[in-house]
Design a protein around this nucleic acid. Structure first.
Lengths: 132, 132, 132, 132
DNA sequence: GTGGTCTAGACCACA
DNA sequence: GTGGTCTAGACCACT
């Protein structure tokens, strides 16, 4: 799993998920995390595809989906830009966070792990992470 | 999303993921949760397929993947049985739990949400759940 | 994999191969190895099935195949007996041995392992076995 | 038993074992033997199926099992490739070789053939092979 | 009766 | 174009 830096974005792609989805997620997370300034220009589809060694269609699809969520906007002849609307970014961030939380709680329930045990597990992981 | 009860198993299938995987997960979770007794016979491939309105091959694939993880074992001409080895079950349960925890923590990190904020989110969800 | 002693025969059954074949092999090997005296009476089908917790049909099939090779013979109303013909036993033994040798050499060839390397591997295994 | 050449692979299929397993083994052995270069593209599922006169599903199953062992990797929409990781190949090769050796030694023991006699048999076979 | 293999053919997602 | 999933239905081996 190689990691490639393009502008302010860091991409690491593997085969476990669709490539367009991974590209999409990396960009979305960078925006949500605040790693990139709102209103900034994104690399062109062709450029990013070249650097990530991907088919332009793959990058295009990632951009399209981000556009659909209004996280980025394409201006004819000028390129693709990150939205300037903080509200949108915040909403997306909250939605993603909420999704992750729900997925986690749901997993614990499906495995029959109660809240206390789940919290213990969480602490263990956080603890291990600090060891790295 | 209809829910179907077969023996001690409850299945609810949708189209978001491969059917065989959903069947697999339901059975695996039931075993991990301790809902079914170890060593018990599973419904036959044909039987489960009939009740879930699936093709036998789809059910079979779920069974085969569980077999590879040693959570179930197939005895020629007799049927398919849940493993009697508690160790295996426990390991699988721990692996699944750990996977979920790591996915959650990773999501939070990718979104730039720190531990405190993450915990707050978790509590909110639990609170909402009680409302349902 | 539990091991069960019945008369002079030791059976250890698993799920990797057909049960009737495993029963057949255990008996055949015991005869080839000289562990049981020629002309001796075998346990009855019902008896062996009971002790091995198998379906009588399974044991029956094993006996039938051994009968086909004239390694055992069933005498109406008296039971099943190991052949008294040493020639037959010797031929079967040689055939099985030859089969094993050919399988081994074939495997090595298919993996592109030459004779020298194969011999080295063989010695390693034998050496490890002595450690046990 | 006809033999079919496809790219750098030679397939000869019979009815003694599942077809998907034979396909799997031929590819695995070719990789272990070093007959094909690591990182190379395999024939597409449909293509190989066509040439071997098999159903695509049969070929796919062979590919999937090889994928699980990390001997090959499938890249969405692009095709199936032999792993580039020499380590994995080497491990698999060693495992297969070891398996064959153990099977052989075990057979000899079960037949009550001692080491010296086994070595004699081995030499005979090699001798016969040169006659062919 | 059980599971396992195989075929034929449809439909989908991805690049 | 690629692989992945699913169905329908046949046939086989084992118990």
């Amino acid at each position: 799993m190689e990691s490639i830096q393009v502008g302010n974005f860091k991409f690491s792609l593997d085969l476990s998920k669709p490539l367009y989805e991974q590209v999409l997620q990396h960009i979305r997370q960078a925006i949500a995390r605040g790693d990139v300034q709102l209103g900034t220009k994104l690399p062109s589809v062709r450029d990013l595809a070249l650097q990530l060694k991907l088919n332009p269609n793959t990058v295009m699809r990632a951009y399209q989906e981000l556009d659909r969520d209004h996280l980025i906007e394409t201006r004819r002849g000028q390129g693709t830009f990150i939205t300037s609307d903080y509200e949108t970014v915040d909403q997306v961030k909250k939605a993603l966070a909420s999704e992750a939380v729900i997925a986690f709680v749901s997993s614990m329930e499906k495995l029959g792990i109660n809240r206390l045990a789940a919290e213990t597990l969480l602490k263990e992981v956080v603890w291990h992470e600090y060891c790295d």
